[in-house]
């Protein structure tokens, strides 16, 4: 739901909800999260694109390239931050879009719950990939081995 607009407040159409006038609820948090994560993502995402498509051609971003990069914990931290902020910024955006277009309350609750499940699942999957990566260790095989395969 969009933040309430106070009576007499000048409304301009610019592509976002009006700045919340206070409150500690989820929608106020969401509004601030969009802006704070957005400012960080301007740098995180554009630098990521530059590194993977400009300074190195995408065809050269192979296993060894990632292994060298992940020898430095800075880049693991960088990717964890990019993953976390981009995923929650994006799925929160999807939630806002669903709130706008799905008028049935039941469907809205069902779909927003689904978005929540997607958020947690993809976050765990991405975190696992970044944290467990180790040069020369086949993580997938190790996990299957532990499960007895």
């Amino acid at each position: 739901m969009a933040a309430p607009v106070k009576e007499g407040q000048k409304i301009t159409s610019y592509g976002a909800s009006a700045r919340p006038t206070g409150g500690t609820g989820f929608e106020t948090f969401s509004w601030w999260f969009f802006r704070v994560s957005g400012v960080a993502l301007v740098f995180l995402a554009i630098i990521h694109l530059f590194l993977m498509h400009v300074s190195t051609d995408v065809s050269e971003t192979v296993y060894d390239f990632v292994a060298k990069r992940y020898d430095n914990p800075f880049w693991r931290g960088y990717d964890l931050l990019l993953l976390t902020l981009a995923l929650f910024h994006g799925l929160n955006g999807l939630r806002i879009v669903c709130d706008d277009y799905i008028s049935s309350r039941g469907w809205r609750v069902a779909i927003v719950s689904g978005i929540f499940v997607i958020a947690i699942s993809f976050w765990l999957l991405g975190m696992m990939t970044i944290i467990t990566f180790h040069r020369n260790i086949n993580v997938a095989q190790s996990i299957l081995g532990m499960l007895g395969h």
């Binding site: 976002a16 955006g93 999807l94 879009v97 991405g126 467990t132 086949n138 993580v139």
Partner: peptide, 29 residues
């Protein structure tokens, strides 16, 4: 407003695919 939504949703779709494709790094070179 429209471009912000459409580009945002497109980036999100790519991000979800990208998280899955990068998982393959755990399967070796």
């Amino acid at each position: 407003w429209l471009l912000h939504r459409v580009t945002g949703l497109a980036i999100l779709l790519f991000l979800l695919v990208h998280i899955v494709d990068i998982t393959l790094i755990g399967f070796g070179p």
